[in-house]
Each structure stands twice: as C-alpha cells, then as structure tokens.
C-alpha cells in the first residue's frame, strides 16, 4: 500500500473548479516535485495535503489514515516566507517545534534541557549555531529558510510540504539550499512534496515530477473544468530512468 494516497480528489471554490480527478500514490521516502502554470491548482493541492483546506470530494490519506480536517504534526510545512516566528530567537524557534504540542506551549525542567540539546544539534546541522540568539528578521533569506526547514524537521512530521521554499532567494543561495536539502534528505529519507516554478529545481531535487494542467478547457467558461495531474515524470537518474538499467540488471546486456 502506498504511503500517501490521493484518491479521486476534487476541489472547487463556489462554482469554480480548481482540481478534478486527482489520483496519485507516493511511497515513503519519495521526493515529489509539483510544477505547473500559475493558477493551475498546485498550491491548492499542497494546501489540501497540508489539510489547511479539505477536498470537495475524494480522500487524502497518510498510511491509510482518514482525510485530515486541520493541520497536524503529521505534516511539516515550509512556505516561501513567514514560516518562522519573528518574536522567537533562532533557538527558541526550534524549541517551539517541540514545545507547542504541550497544553501551555512550553517545556520545563529536564524536558526543556533535552529540547535545548536537540535544538543545538539541529542548529549545528543547519549551520545556524553562530546566530542562535538572534531574531529571524536579522537573518538572510537563505538562513531563514534553513531555520524553517530545521524547525519543520524538529517536529518529525510524516511528510514535509514545501511551498516554493526557495522562490524568494537569489540564485547562488538557491543552489546552496538545494545541496542542503539533498543532504538532509539523504540523512532522513523524508517524504517530501515541493511546489516550485523552477523546472530545473523540480527535476534536480525530485524523484518524481508531477505536472498540473487543465486537460479540458471551455473558452466560454474557464472556471468550468479543473486541473489535474497531466504528467508524472520519473525524475531519478537525471530524468532518464533507464539509462543505468544495465547496472541494475546485468543479465539484460547478454541477451
């Protein structure tokens, strides 16, 4: 059974269709890039994965569970901006990822100490240990996104959702963030969904690239039909899935 199952999902706002008949199943540890033109519903799809909004029809399940009605700790998220809390220091932002689930949103005593130790380890990992007492506003865009990713990972979600996470970064920082994300993935084998406008980025980072588009189009009523997944590329091995098939199946060469 698939890890994340999206079954016949429709979404509409009023009488405007956004998505129709979206079916996809994703294995644990897969990195799924989602691309498409603006307004094609890819962000809507991500919001439904996040359970920020519920599908009009259909089911979205993680490990066979029910469709969630509100965001929870199963889903981690990093937005293009505003993903970290401006009033908390860098370190407090990471501790919040553990503390917020408590009734008062705080940790005390040894629990707090342990969370601090883990936060410091994460800060080391994301390379922000030199700014731990600063506030997010004083960090660069790349550092803020590293913190946001670290914060989301600290909560140990089942799936990580990235909504154009590097869209506001300059090209150099963006490349650094790609390396950072690839390393992090190698270590954690996290299941990731990433919405992006950058096709190179989608193929570089993703195992799969889903393309959202409208298969049907009514010129008199553009809102009549919604978008769906029109392409589902295998993006492993630089998007050419069978080029190394002989390495995997040497017997084929002799045939």
């Amino acid at each position: 059974m698939s890890f994340v199952g999206v079954t016949n999902v429709w979404q509409r706002y009023g009488d405007r269709s956004i998505l129709e008949r979206v079916n996809v199943s994703v294995d644990e540890g897969e990195f799924v890039s989602i691309v498409g033109a603006s307004g094609c519903g890819k962000s809507t799809f991500l919001r439904m994965l996040l359970a920020e909004e519920s599908p009009y029809k259909g089911d979205i399940s993680i490990e066979g569970g029910d469709t969630a009605v509100e965001p929870n700790r199963e889903r981690g998220v990093v937005f293009q901006k505003y993903s970290v809390f401006p009033h908390l220091s860098v370190r407090e932002n990471l501790i919040a990822a553990e503390a917020f689930q408590n009734p008062l949103g705080t940790l005390r005593g040894s629990a707090r100490k342990n969370a601090e130790t883990r936060a410091d380890a994460m800060l080391e990992r994301i390379g922000l240990n030199h700014v731990l007492h600063q506030f997010p506003a004083s960090l660069s865009g790349g550092m803020q996104q590293r913190l946001a990713i670290g914060q989301a990972m600290t909560a140990k979600p089942r799936i990580l959702l990235l909504d154009e996470p590097f869209g506001a970064l300059d090209p150099g920082t963006r490349l650094q963030m790609h390396d950072f994300l690839l390393e992090l993935r190698e270590e954690t084998n996290m299941t990731v969904f990433m919405v992006t406008h950058d096709l190179d980025e989608a193929f570089k980072l993703g195992d799969r690239v889903l393309v959202f588009d409208k298969p049907r189009w009514d010129p008199q009523d553009p809102g009549l039909f919604g978008a769906t997944i029109t392409y589902d590329f295998d993006a492993r091995d630089k998007g050419i899935p069978y080029q190394d098939i002989l390495a995997a199946y040497p017997s084929l060469a002799s045939a």
């Binding site: 965001p71 981690g76 809390f85 009033h87 503390a99 689930q101 009734p103 949103g105 914060q151 909560a155």
Partner: peptide, 25 residues
Amino acid sequence: PNEQIVKAQTLGASSWVVAQRVALP
C-alpha cells in the same frame, strides 16, 4: 500571516497555544 498560524498547527499547537505563544507576543 496565515502561514504562521498554519505552521504553529503543524507543530501541534492548540488554539490556546496559538493565542498565547503566537498571537499574544
């Protein structure tokens, strides 16, 4: 920003924690 409210929820925050640790400060 709604992003912050959603983020807090993905970290497991209840309505009370969102009010007290995100909105109030």
